[in-house]
Nucleic acid binder design. Sequence first.
DNA 1: CTGGCTGCAAAGGTTTTGCAAAACA
DNA 2: TGTTTTGCAAAACCTTTGCAGCCAG
Lengths: 171, 171
Amino acid sequence: MAGPATEDLITEVKEIFRNYLKDKKHRQTPERLMVLEEIYRADGHFDADDMYFRMKNVGYRVSRATVYNTLDLLLECGLVQRHQFGKNQSIYERAYAYRQHDHMICNKCGKVIEFCDPRLQEIKTMMEKIHGFEIDGHSLQFYGICKNPDECRQDEQDVPAEPEAESSKKN
Amino acid sequence: MAGPATEDLITEVKEIFRNYLKDKKHRQTPERLMVLEEIYRADGHFDADDMYFRMKNVGYRVSRATVYNTLDLLLECGLVQRHQFGKNQSIYERAYAYRQHDHMICNKCGKVIEFCDPRLQEIKTMMEKIHGFEIDGHSLQFYGICKNPDECRQDEQDVPAEPEAESSKKN
DNA sequence: CTGGCTGCAAAGGTTTTGCAAAACA
DNA sequence: TGTTTTGCAAAACCTTTGCAGCCAG
């Protein structure tokens, strides 16, 4: 992680988003800008429902529909990236002014480590050439067991240690 | 793709599955073996519902629950692999006697190309070392536009050309 | 026999959709 | 003012679960 964004960065991404909306003739609603702001203010990985409740906790009343709508727009303009970490659920994270990276996920505790390797870019370039494909994105995850000796390396204890902590979600 | 499996291969994977079931003290039911057979007989990528209807078309009455159950077992013993191609749905394919590969997916027509590059293994090994992670699997997809000039390269036609053909699914 | 497995249907969790009201341009 | 966007709730979609009956071991 890189920690929450600075006020400057937040101003910057909002500006980018506004330009994008104007360009695509989409409306510039407070809900859309608030979702973007909250993403960059908080940092880290989140799912759509996380964002829904985060907005509520910040005192902002939005619907899930708007959250999904906005996330789609942010994906389209490249301010947000979408991942799937093995579950049938989309995970998002901010993408602007943040180094390109991939993810390594612990199957026991759910911890996510970010990494980057230039060789992936080489693979991508070669595959584009070989197959005449025009690649505009990728998704790479490694799955395994992290080095946490207490929870994850207790060799075949039967306790599966449910990944991820619960947040205070309610409808 | 490699085409459907030979009878010999089907016999072989069934034997592997039987041994696995015996070893894990799971029962060797006709449903489980039929699902495995159908996977190797047909080849290609499929989702759980595809398999449910394929079984029905072959005249075999199974439930979705059994399909999911069996796919989990086949994943555990390595005869099947699971992927997610950008949608919130699991896609499966056979994994035995089939080269290790990753996928390149066309965002327009949904076509899936398989590829393999040894550099990925190098990345994996390095990340294991650097982060003390014990990696036991990965997932790599490239997304983009394939070279199909009719459907996919008609530069910004508005027709999004719904990926994937529909099969005759009903309950 | 007997506990694991099955089919069926209902429940669960995530995402999408329909619609009237609100609000951007 | 005209449409897009919104909130809400219902629907859709994929997957899991509960349960009575079945069957492999």
